[in-house]
Amino acid sequence: MSELFYNAVPNATRVAPPIPQPRQYPASKPARVYLFGTCVVDLFYPEAGMDAIRLLEREGIRVDFPQGQSCCGQPAYTSGYTDQARTVARAQLALFAGDQPVVVPSGSCAGMLRQHYADLFKDEPETLEQVQALAERTFELAEFLLHVCKVQLKDNGQPVKVALHTSCSARREMNTHLHGRALLAQLTNVERVEHSHESECCGFGGTFSVRMPDISGAMVADKTHNLKASGAHQVLSADCGCLMNINGALEKQRETLRGQHLATFLWQRSGGGR
């Protein structure tokens, strides 16, 4: 989060963003995984969740979706409501027990599980071991497809230029931009165009966009201006919070350019089959 965010939100937890560490990936694909769908996918982009499941099932993996899952706790955590965030997180820990990998179609939510739950439960040694085990088996969707499934995508679509937006937290915490780029590079008819401000926040920032709407609006205006200037036909992102903000701004500007979740794009381009 930016310094503006912390100045605007007095109770915000000031935690330096962790630097992604190299990790050991499983030697083979697991037979089953959990999908942590995220609340934004559930409420606003359900097709992204379904396409994530389809991509995983096509790799021969059975996907379990615990029905009681909810928010990862990130909005409360970054707003300084630690007790409330811990309550939400504890419920997710109970639902995603065992040793199955947890795949998340959102880099920011995956980062919360993998990087920030340890801070949230640092004063509970009896829970911390469970939290650390969850962190080790949590993967962002593109990361999992690339490094665990070692997916090989066949492009069945027409030539298209796309711009990839990676949320600022997902970029720092989960290297989502690298995973997305690598998957798109497998699609022979897809040209990924570079755009200015790619690494900058779109202005959503969860509760930041509500507390500081003028600054948030200026940030998404910069983001959409540069996306339009890139010449891309389509915007892709692995974070639905960013998509909701960017698409809302583009719609207000009466632009035809729109964003789509990476999972849906990959599923559609590869024709739903090998």
Score class of each variant (00 low, 15 high):
Gly68Phe: 06
Thr78Lys: 04
Met50Phe: 12
Ile215Lys: 12
Phe121Gly: 07
Ala163Met: 10
His116Ile: 01
Gln100Tyr: 05
Gly241Asn: 14
Leu236Met: 06
Pro18Thr: 02
Pro18Gln: 02
Leu243Arg: 08
Ser108Val: 10
Val103Gly: 04
Asp83Arg: 10
Phe265Glu: 05
Gly273Arg: 15
Asn189Arg: 11
Gln92Ser: 04
Val15His: 06
His233Pro: 03
Gly203Tyr: 14
Leu93Val: 03
Cys149Met: 10
Arg137Tyr: 05
Val131Phe: 08
Gly157Ile: 02
Asp51Glu: 12
Thr188Gln: 09
Glu191Ile: 01
Ser169His: 05
Ile61Arg: 10
Ala218Trp: 08
Ala12Phe: 07
Ala8Glu: 06
Gly217Met: 14
Phe44His: 06
Ser230Gly: 01
Ser70Asp: 06
Asn247Arg: 07
Gly111Met: 02
Phe44Met: 09
Ala31Asn: 12
Gln21His: 01
Phe139Asp: 07
Trp267His: 13
Gln186Arg: 05
Ala135Cys: 02
Thr127Arg: 06
Ile53His: 03
Val88Phe: 06
Leu266Tyr: 00
Gly231Val: 01
Arg211Pro: 05
Ile246Thr: 01
Ala221Arg: 13
His261Pro: 01
Glu198Gln: 10
Arg254Lys: 08
Phe65Pro: 01
Glu143Cys: 04
Phe121Ala: 12
Pro18Lys: 02
Val190Asn: 09
His116Glu: 13
Ala89Trp: 06
Arg114Asn: 04
Arg114Ala: 02
Gly206Thr: 10
Gln132Leu: 15
Cys39Val: 00
Ala97Gln: 07
Gly273Pro: 04
Gln130Val: 14
Ala238Phe: 09
Gln130Trp: 03
Cys202Leu: 15
Leu95Asp: 00
Arg90Leu: 10
Thr78Val: 14
Phe139Cys: 10
Val104Pro: 12
Ser28Trp: 00
His179Met: 07
Val151Arg: 03
Arg32Lys: 13
Phe5Ser: 11
Phe139Trp: 06
Thr127Asn: 07
Glu57Lys: 12
Thr13Met: 12
Arg137Gln: 07
Leu266Met: 01
Lys150Ser: 08
Phe139Arg: 00
Gly60Phe: 08
Arg23Ser: 11
Glu143Arg: 03
Lys161His: 10
Gly248Thr: 11
Val41Ser: 00
Gln74His: 04
Gly49Leu: 08
Gly203Glu: 15
Phe208Trp: 12
Val63Gly: 13
Val210Asp: 05
Gly259Leu: 01
Tyr77Glu: 02
Gly203Gln: 15
Leu43Asn: 03
Arg192Gln: 06
Arg211Gln: 13
Arg58Leu: 15
Val220Thr: 15
Ser270Ala: 13
Thr87Phe: 08
Ala221Glu: 15
Leu134Ser: 03
Ala12Lys: 06
Ala182Val: 05
Leu243Asn: 07
Ala182Glu: 09
Pro125Glu: 02
Arg172His: 03
Ala118Met: 02
Cys72Val: 11
Leu262Met: 15
Ala52Glu: 06
Gln67Tyr: 05
Cys39Gly: 01
Leu113Phe: 07
Arg137Asp: 05
Gly231Cys: 00
Thr176Asp: 11
Gln132Phe: 14
